[in-house]
Amino acid sequence: MRYHYYPGCSLHGTAKEYDDSLRSVCKALGVELAEVEGWICCGTSSRISMSPTVGAALPLENLMLVEQAGGGDVLVPCPACLNRFKSVQHDLEEDSALKEKLERTLGRAYEGRVEARHPLDVLVDLVGSDEMRPKLVRSLNGLRVASYYGCVLVRPPETMGYDDYEYPMVMDRLVRTLGGEPIDWSYKTECCGANFALTRTDIVRKLSCDIMVNARDEGAEIICTCCQMCQANLDTRKREIEQEFGVELDLPIVYYSQLIGLAVGLDPGTLGFERHFVDPRPVLREKGIL
């Protein structure tokens, strides 16, 4: 199996452990990832632009690069990038004038032979398949996991293709397959404060606090996420949150790719746990997973 791969800016920077663990897991499962040659920013940087065209041209340029490289599925681990790609594709289908305009700007035609997908959607089926079952050599031993999806993986549902957008289950199913226990909780798709990570950190602290407190109260031992912005906002602000709100939160925030990595028996030392602010290893050890 071979997929195009668009890592996006943060997976080459602050979220390197997401990139690393995803690549190792794909390799272990026999999935080949071909990084899109010459990829650029997905267009989320256009929020300050006076022109609506900028936010459409940048993602389309990337989709065109994928099409040039043969087209087909491209895996996009960052939900914000994925959302940009799917939105522009959606807009092009509805607006042929926009399509023409963008093709002129980018100097290329686009046939639409590309589908952007989140790796989670691909991996959940793969890991759950009968042929992969023997590869799951380590169980999560009933680890109680809160699956946290964040905002834009599932919204807007007509673009992102989620029916259960208020209460998605795809990551929960994955956790169950890996031997963990998905918990029921209320903040699955609440916002972490995303873009305010560096500026209005007061907003990030409040939203992240609410999310983590609910997960803890519902009995989670760990939070599993599919978005590097959610991971960073929840993980890096923990100590400040504890001080500001007088709560105690010992919740590590891991990626689904790291959990799959454990299950398929990868060396935990290669999964990047040491790069998190709240070290997940103690609870993993306590549960007999490490």
Binding site: C9, I40, S45, S46, I48, S49, N195, T199
Partner: peptide, 18 residues
């Protein structure tokens, strides 16, 4: 300011450079 800084790095490096 945040959005402007982000776009600035994209203009220079093609990607968001933290």
């Amino acid at each position: 300011a945040f959005y402007r800084s982000a776009l600035f790095t994209v203009k220079n490096f093609g990607r968001l450079y933290e």
